[in-house]
Design a protein around this nucleic acid. Sequence first.
DNA 1: GGGGGCTATGGGGGG
DNA 2: CATAGCCCCC
Length: 754
Amino acid sequence: MQELGFSYLEELNDIQRQAVTSIDGPVMVIAGPGSGKTRVLTYRIAHIINKGVPPWEILALTFTNKAAREMKERIEKVVGSGAQRVWAGTFHSLFAKILRREAHRIGYPNDFTIYDTDDSKSVINDIIKSLNLDKKVYNNGAVRARISAAKSNLITPKAYVNNEELMAYDRMNRRPLIYQIYEKYAAKCLRAGAMDFDDLLLQMFRLLYQNPDGVREKYQRQFKYILVDEFQDTNHLQYSTIKLLVDYPESPQNICIVGDDAQSIYSFRGATIENILMFQTDYPQVNTFKLEQNYRSTQFIVDAANEVITNNKRQIQKKIWTDKDEGDKIKLIKAVTETEEGKRVSDSIVENKNRYNLRNSEIAILYRTNSQSRVFEEHLRRYNIPYRIYGGLSFYQRKEIKDLVAYMRLTVNDKDDEALKRIINYPRRSIGKTTVEKISSIADDNEMSMWEVLTKIDFGPRAKKSIIEFVKTVQSFKNKAQTLNAYELATFISRKSGIAELLKADTSPEGEARVENVNALLDGIKEFVDNDELVDGDDITDKSMSSFLQTISLMTDADQDSTDTDVVTLMSVHAAKGLEYRSVYVVGLEENLFPSYMSLASPDQIDEERRLFYVAITRAEEYLTLSFAASRYQYGQTRYNDPSRFLDEIGEGNLDSLISIQKSKPDFPQPKVLGNFKKLGSRKTPALGIDPSSFSASPAHSIKPGMTVIHLKFGQGKVNSIDERMVASIYFDGLSENQEKRIMLKYAKLQIVE
DNA sequence: GGGGGCTATGGGGGG
DNA sequence: CATAGCCCCC
């Protein structure tokens, strides 16, 4: 350990310092936004190291790879290069790393594949098909969500079928067989040597719980100090796994959790604030510290945040305060359409840059959904303001990348059926849908992988030739994998698979971009191979292809280094958690968007949207601007939304007084339906002579039983009833007697007549 | 049996 | 508006 040129402890306030130096026993830190949470975490780790603990005995679980990287850099400044060997990373990435060493003990190959969401859905699709279920009722996304929730709550397929609550819920949604799909899905993944994202947590739990060869004790002994960041966003499964690592006879229970119940925004992923309460029960001797001083934002912003969050019912009592100046009041931009919103926000960015001398990198635009980025992009480009969009399609989600990666996956793990299906006929080699389905069903019937079927079963003369050719190609990759490093292998694959050639043949700009992307992937692999830094407590670095594949499957867009530094940041509010900017624009503040229409039915979900809004506004250091558009092109048509309820909650005193919010609904100027009209007309002719150009849908929540409404296709009708899931039953005049239509209001295009 | 074009349908946040 | 599945032609 190197001697310090300064004392890091002097940079902390009293409570922060206590949180840093109380390293023995369970500790809970409740940290408001901007309260120096990261500083506490990093200095705490540095402090532990300075007390003589080897870095690799410290496990720091963060929410993003980025947070982990930042943390390591900051620890390094205090303790030197040993910081790199702290086990710091996301739950998913660190558990994957451990499973790469231990998975064979629980029936998986150490080279297991990680299935992304698309892979999971595809597996589920196949199962739904094989069970002859209606894929509209058994929507694969919904089924996947149920399975994911079950795993996050440590519910096995067997426990699922015996859980009356889950089964009743599925019956209610007319999907009583989800438990069967779950069971088959789990079996299929295991057979494919594949884990989905939830499995990285679940199989880690199983590993510790079943404890083959004393593996649990091994990790209990190794991780003497455990820290968990963003604890409010952990789910039951994560909590249980941490507990297995911490709780054992004679354990010092050196566990420190850091979080803020007010910033819990991932319940859709199974996160539960209950974990904070549970922690207090499970560790009654816990030392709790509350960080309430905000060092980030000016007074008006902090006040607004406090005002907003008081609208939520359940919360841990705390009052965030700042000793900064009151600063500028919060500004509000009202726009008529989303295009105008894009323009006016961009105008404001230009103006603020000049007035306050802001750099691009000090500005962020935050939105609820990634699809909102487009209008801001367009206007920023027009003004020559460089920007970078985080989220949305990550580099590794691009088709050309996934194709090449699929070859690599299959090379490493030939049981990976999803990878095989992706590339068996890409580039074209005359193995069509029918043949693939045949291979797949033989594989299912014999509990084999598709690769095994290809290599062991004789096919008809027509398919045979192509299949032999394909098997030969992949086999050559597998052979090369013995001698080549990951980079050489990837280059070999891109050439011999025919992908490189195929892409080069396309000389359109998009085609050229695809070639560049593939080259970028190869460069990335080279960098991965050449970089020999030791991280996360490793003694040797693993440069295999399978190690690379695992790294990238856990990488999100936000984790990629950006070469351009002085750019405006565009991202979702979720992605902005933990970040801060001098100037922040929170856009699209409308009912049905923020809060999301998906959340309107449930008060709990509205509260979560509110916490999300709280996270959004507390990203701002000095200048906070909110915006909304009165109309927005959504779901294929122009919708009119009221300003978000959250705008009413920030406190009038905190808002720039020159501007006041007015509700837009009553006789709002009729928008011009431009290109839209022709398109609608050229589609199937609307029934019953309704002119689409004069049609304007009313917001879903304004429709009530008894009303007369117009539907573009069905014409005029009367709303009979609306149930709790916002499904309306409507009698349309044009349809035969007593024929009732059931329509989901959230998708419906209905205009109120009276 | 494979490949291409067309239609219908669904659309949140992320590791 | 994008994608998946379906139908039709080769």
